[in-house]
């Protein structure tokens, strides 16, 4: 009965995932525990959306590899999935557009809930069972799940970097959808919210999840260790490590990719103001 009032939530994480690490995966677990602990939400699915190659971040390897590694990493998760829509776009896509895309996907999935042919993979089926188990319990069918953007405190901080985000996109993401922000050691998420008028205005839509166990595995650190021939075992799933080693994905060479190339968002927004 308490389940009836619970709002279904889908968590979307956008980023390079170059490569996906255990820390990315932990963020999903922490966010789900936090949201469900409020008693108001039931997290039915997580989506990892690796950025496309056109983002041109230094050292960014091809999206097909980053997508595949994320898939390998979530193989044993019953609720975290990987979506390649963003990475398949020819141009870099603003995060707000990615959120919009997934939101409309959720709406149409809700409308076609009886169509069995939307089931593509075993994972999909598993996730939908998750969602169905929830919706069958509530007879009112309050509609499609809410979509929230899952991020680290660094993303919250990046909102204030000039020309990285369009102000109306920030407004849309936090105002219309909502943010779940997992804070890593040292980052003061509450401070960022307080310092930004738009974030402060929508603070009720920003869920800050405190990570008590600092687990600062960054993909940058993982790539650096790999280039230097150091072990990264247990920092990311074994399957991902095997995938990297089989293809010698991260080298001094790959790290040079897009050196001195301006990041797509800067390129786009700087152009617009000229």
């Amino acid at each position: 009965m308490a389940l009836q009032q619970k709002t279904k939530v889908v968590l979307l994480a956008c980023g390079s995932f170059n490569p996906v690490t255990n820390m990315h995966l932990r963020m999903f677990e922490l966010a789900r525990d936090h949201l469900e602990d409020t008693g108001k939400y039931r997290v039915v699915r997580g989506i990892i959306s690796p950025v496309g190659d056109a983002y041109k971040k230094k050292g960014l390897i091809e999206a097909c590899h980053r997508v595949e590694m994320a898939k390998q990493a979530t193989e044993n998760s019953s609720w975290i999935t990987v979506d390649d829509w963003e990475s398949q776009q020819a141009e870099w896509v603003e995060t707000a557009k990615v959120v919009r895309h997934h939101h409309s996907e959720l709406l149409s999935a809700e409308q076609n809930v009886d169509e069995a042919d939307t089931v593509k993979t075993v994972k999909r089926r598993r996730v939908e069972e998750n969602e169905d188990a929830c919706s069958s319990a509530d007879h009112n069918r309050p509609g499609a799940p809410e979509l929230k953007l899952l991020c680290g405190a660094d993303v919250l901080e990046s909102f204030s970097v000039p020309n990285l985000w369009k102000p109306e996109d920030i407004e849309e993401i936090v105002g219309r959808y909502g943010l779940v922000c997992v804070t890593r050691g040292g980052c003061d998420a509450e401070k960022f919210v307080n310092q930004s008028d738009v974030l402060f205005q929508h603070r009720k839509n920003i869920h800050i999840v405190r990570e008590w166990v600092t687990n600062d595995i960054s993909a940058t650190h993982v790539r650096r260790s790999l280039r230097r021939g150091r072990s990264v075992r247990y920092l990311l799933p074994d399957r991902v490590l095997d995938y990297i080693q089989d293809r010698c994905l991260y080298s001094a060479e790959s790290e040079k990719k897009y050196t001195d190339v301006i990041l797509a968002p800067f390129q786009r927004y700087t152009k617009n103001t000229e």
């Binding site: 050691g185 166990v213 600092t214 687990n215 600062d216 595995i217 960054s218 650190h221």
Partner: peptide
């Protein structure tokens, strides 16, 4: 150890 990794059995 360069990354902060405070996973403890207690936690």
């Amino acid at each position: 150890e360069w990354i902060r990794n405070e996973i403890s059995a207690t936690e």
